[in-house]
């Protein structure tokens, strides 16, 4: 792990815009600039559920959920630096064996195409690192399947259809904990 050096407290102050990017505000401004009058309403809840981890991680079965899409040969450019590709989107939860080396791409989502290229799958899918963690005994096991979550502008589609389908699959897999990696 990164260690903090004693002189970090005396480091120079960084610029005011060196903060987490305000994506909601930028998206709202962008919709307005594109001429859409009705800004998108982001999901927002006062209450947040919480379940403590009951099984020690070195005995736990950990499942990975991704928003990456299986490569579809007929759906156009999905390679590194591909422009946004709506045809490569998927609309139903999918599952693939985690002992495979899946070909999952992110050309269907709005990743930062200017500052990154999606050339290395391990930047958006921590599968290889999770397999190493299982071999090293840091986690008990990787779940038998990786599950794909369709990204959807409609909260209701996600909450009513996709989230229950993902829960069911995680239960079938005997998952003790889940890691979610959105792009």
């Amino acid at each position: 792990m990164t260690t903090i050096s004693p002189d970090i407290a005396r480091a120079a102050i960084t610029s005011d815009d060196d903060v987490a990017i305000p994506y909601m505000q930028r998206t709202r401004d962008c919709y307005l600039a594109l001429g859409y009058g009705n800004p998108y309403r982001w999901a927002h809840f006062a209450d947040v559920p919480f379940t403590p981890l009951k099984t020690p991680l070195d005995q736990a079965r950990v499942t990975l959920i991704t928003t990456a899409a299986p490569f579809q040969p007929e759906a156009g450019d999905q390679g590194p630096r591909a422009p946004y590709n709506a045809r490569a989107k998927f609309y139903q939860v999918y599952s693939i064996p985690s002992d495979s080396v899946p070909d999952l791409r992110i050309s269907h989502v709005g990743y930062d195409r200017r500052h990154t290229s999606a050339e290395d799958i391990n930047t958006y899918l921590p599968l290889a690192r999770l397999k190493e963690a299982a071999v090293a005994g840091r986690i008990g096991a990787l779940g038998p399947r990786i599950h794909g979550a369709p990204t959807n502008r409609s909260h209701r589609t996600t909450v009513d259809l996709d989230a229950p389908a993902l829960l069911r699959r995680c239960q079938e897999d005997g998952s003790d904990a889940v890691i979610l990696a959105p792009s």
Binding site: I21, Y23, W42, A43, F45, V48, P49, F50, T51, P52, L53, K54, I65, T67, V109, G110, P126, A149, P150, T151, N152, R153, H155, T158, V159, D162, A163, P164, L166, L167, C170, Q171, S175, D176, A177, V178, I179, L180, A181, P182, S183
Partner: peptide, 26 residues
């Protein structure tokens, strides 16, 4: 929308007894 989607999914899993962590940039 990816970050919102998985946030909704994490809430659903957690409410049903499965602990979660999101690795995210937004």
């Amino acid at each position: 929308m990816c970050h919102q989607t998985v946030s909704l999914v994490a809430r659903h899993l957690e409410a049903s007894g499965i602990p979660t962590v999101i690795m995210g940039c937004a």
